[in-house]
């Protein structure tokens, strides 16, 4: 599967460059946190890596192009108009797993995200935090090798954020490669092994978490980190 190599990659929309040019190699390890101001291209970068964004120039190549082992949690969680447990079973149902196996997995995940009581209720009636947890569990239910998350805690309170961070750390420990965008610097510090700092569609700085946070090299990152602390 790894590494993923982005070479001379750019994405244009309506003639404007929204990402790139970028050269980047993603290898085993992580979790990787993608940080940067609004509109800097975090979402676009994740979507390119996941293979769901049209590339204008350059290439994004996985050593082993098996998309089936990826999962993606979107910035605003997609909820199927089905029950909570049907939301969870959907990805497994798509790859035709046997019924008993699906049921076991759904029961396991529904308890793990604490939604056992509402298993048979419509997922449309869940709160924002519950939806986000559901989307993450639905992404994890196929046991992906790579998990992309786009600001999964952006609307959540401290309690829910903590629960999700714990879940993500456990997932990473179990061997899933996590690549995640966040605007919460506290969260980035808590989760990151390495960091990609985006600015105006380009990778302005990248490195291991301690270096990036405690000894930023570029003036952009220094300003960004300071701004976030002042906030």
């Amino acid at each position: 599967m790894f590494p993923l190599a982005l070479s001379n990659l750019s994405v244009r929309r309506r003639g404007k460059i929204v990402l790139g040019p970028i050269d980047l190699v993603i290898d085993q390890g992580g979790p990787t946190m993608v940080i940067g101001p609004n509109g800097s291209g975090k979402t676009t970068l994740l979507r390119v890596m996941h293979g769901i964004e049209r590339i204008s120039e350059g290439t994004a190549e996985w050593a082993q192009p098996d998309h089936a082992n990826h999962a993606y949690v979107f910035q605003s969680p997609v909820v199927l108009r089905r029950t909570v447990s049907e939301n969870l079973s959907y990805p497994l149902y798509l790859i035709k797993r046997p019924k008993p196996e699906i049921n076991t997995a759904v029961e396991y995940w529904i308890e793990r995200i604490g939604l056992g009581k509402v298993a048979n209720r419509s997922a449309m009636r869940l709160s924002g935090g519950e939806r986000q947890k559901l989307a993450i569990a639905r992404a994890l239910i196929r046991d992906p090798e790579v998990l992309f998350l786009d600001e999964p805690c952006s609307n959540l309170d401290g309690q829910s954020t903590r629960e999700i961070e714990t879940l993500l750390l456990e997932t990473a420990a179990a061997g899933t490669r996590i690549i995640m965008a966040t605007h919460d610097m506290g969260q980035a510090r808590r989760l990151a092994a390495d960091v990609i700092f985006m600015k105006s569609g380009r990778i302005a700085e990248t490195g291991l978490a301690p270096n990036v946070f405690d000894a930023p090299k570029t003036s952009e990152l220094k300003a960004f980190l300071k701004g976030d602390i002042l906030e």
Binding site: H67, F74, V78, L80, R81, R82
Partner: peptide
């Protein structure tokens, strides 16, 4: 518009997308 991203991400076939939309709608 709601499902687009998820169904693309899950690598579903055209026919599967239509079936999912019909069932959920």
């Amino acid at each position: 518009a709601e499902y687009h991203d998820l169904l693309i991400s899950l690598n579903t076939s055209k026919w599967r997308r239509i079936k999912t939309l019909i069932w959920d709608g």
